[in-house]
Amino acid sequence: MLNVRNLTVAYDDTPVFKALAVTFAPGKITGIIGPNGAGKSTLIKGMLGLIKTQAGTATFDQQPLSQLKTKVAYVEQRKDLDLTFPINVAEVVLTGTYGRLGLFKSPGRTERQASAAALAQVKLTDLAQRQIGNLSGGQLQRVFVARAIVQDAEIIILDEPFVGIDLQSETAIMQILKQWRDAGKTIIVVHHDLNKVSRYFDDLVILNHGIVAAGPVESVYTPANIAKTFSADLSQVLFAAGGGQ
């Protein structure tokens, strides 16, 4: 169980959220939705200790998350990535082994085999030697999902993984997420497309400068909650054609 307690994050004295508490269950795909600027990415980064937090803890099975770094795989938004970097697909996936290798050890045959297997899982074996600037958005996202596979983590966090990618890639990634879920891992997905919420997620967290609602998707993804967090109009459009599908 991933447990966030009393988390407060502020940028320049303006709190994004205060004393936030939420739990993420293993064996579940949990979606996080909320309007732009609601603090979705901030929550993730705060949990992972990538930004300064004013208060709060994040623990996994009673241990601080900050001491379990190799148990977490984080697939962040790729907008800042340097696509001209001299690195190919296979090498990017191989960097997923760096955390457990530690200093002064180079990836060997075991690591290379794990990377090749992960690439096969996301169906990119043919592109293994391609420089990453020559990939489509969907292919690139699958490369980073393959790296998360190689990391063999207990907690996998993806920030807006389906933005700007093709349907084939989206399906391939969703398949991997379901395999992870069935293996009992904790999966967290920051998401923006409200249409697919009840199809993709088991649990849902609605965030808007604090938790609006959290729990099983059936009980959280309701017209009332969407109207309260986003807008009444949006709620009407989404739920007009039968139960939010």
Binding site: L48, K69, V72, T95, Y98, G99
Partner: peptide, 12 residues
């Protein structure tokens, strides 16, 4: 050089 955030998440 390539992905500093990733390096940070694994503790580098």
């Amino acid at each position: 050089s390539f992905d500093a955030t990733f390096a940070q998440t694994y503790g580098l």
